[in-house]
């Protein structure tokens, strides 16, 4: 029983890491309709940026700040410079996936070529451990959970309470109508790239803070969970992404606690397969109608 409760604690940490990534992913997917696989490379970029800052001896806060900045810059660069080349040619949704996959591999192997295929260790103080019954969590892990909650609340209030959020939701729902109503669509897309890119960088950073190692393929290895949570939670829904991340985090850690690390990946995967089998309509749903890329 205590193993089960302890794994709930770790599940919460894993869920928070997945949630930060999948919120960013679902935001850009919901708005631009591009299933952006290069999100994986953006997470690696964020983590690598923080790693470099840490190796240069920057203070802890700068290390934490570098990841979202690097992620946002890289995402804006790709989103503004590369994607329009293809969307202007009338590439469909699937062609855009292939483009983002190519960009992902390109960036990932560029990092691999530059970093000499090494696995780096990230030195980050984990702080004291706190005991909540059988649950033991370090300060770092607690701040990851707190950070995820904070990000979720601020993203939700941005979407629900501000003019910008209203414009974002309008564009996600009906891009042409939004444009006709005078929503500056180009600027809104830029904002989306910035927010989601920053979240990608942060996701890479918190993943690295938890595992304390990083290499060129960190983002690619973590991507299935982020992508899976975003797909389970339906495109564009931050609440859905967080709930799906919670389910995935718990499932992976509980299965891992009882069956070993291999089962944790299987559990996450099984969850996705079950949902695909049992409620495919929830997946296809209204998004089947949107056949265009909005950039």
């Amino acid at each position: 029983m205590s193993i089960f409760i302890a794994s709930l604690g770790f599940g919460l940490v894993t869920a928070s890491i997945i949630a930060i990534g999948s919120m960013g992913f679902t935001l850009q997917f919901g708005l631009t309709n591009v299933l952006n696989i290069s999100f994986g490379a953006m997470m690696t970029f964020g983590a690598m940026g923080s790693l470099v800052a840490e190796k240069l001896g920057a203070s802890m806060w700068i290390v934490v700040l570098v990841a979202p900045i690097v992620g946002a810059l890289a995402t804006v660069a790709v989103g503004r410079l590369v994607f329009p080349i293809f969307s202007r040619r009338g590439s469909g949704l699937f062609e855009m996936v292939m483009v983002t996959l190519a960009i992902d591999l390109l960036l990932q192997y560029l990092v691999d070529a530059v970093d000499h295929e090494q696995i780096f260790s990230f030195n980050f103080p984990s702080g004291h451990s706190f005991h909540f019954g059988p649950i033991v969590l370090t300060v770092t892990q607690l701040s990851i959970i707190a950070g995820a909650i904070l990000l979720f609340v601020s993203l939700e209030s941005l979407l629900r309470r501000t003019r910008l959020g209203k414009a974002l939701r309008a564009m996600a729902g009906e891009p042409r109508l939004a444009r006709a109503c005078g929503v500056p669509t180009g600027r809104i897309v830029n904002v989306t790239w910035i927010i989601s890119g920053a979240l990608a960088g942060l996701a890479g950073l918190v993943y690295m803070m938890n595992s304390l190692t990083v290499d060129a393929f960190t983002g690619a290895n973590f991507l299935p969970f982020v992508l899976g949570a975003a797909i389970l939670g339906r495109a564009g829904s931050t609440v859905g992404a967080v709930v799906a991340a919670l389910a995935m985090g718990m499932a992976t850690e509980i299965a891992g606690a009882f069956g070993g690390s291999a089962y944790s990946t299987v559990a996450g995967f099984a969850l996705l397969a079950i949902v695909l089998l049992t409620r495919p309509s929830g997946l296809i749903g209204d998004t089947l109608l949107k056949e265009e890329v909005t950039l």
Binding site: L35, I37, L93, F94, M96, V97, M98, L227, I231, P280, L283, I284, T287, L288
Partner: peptide, 8 residues
């Protein structure tokens, strides 16, 4: 389903 979902 949408081909991009399928691919993912």
């Amino acid at each position: 389903m949408r081909r991009d979902y399928q691919a993912a």
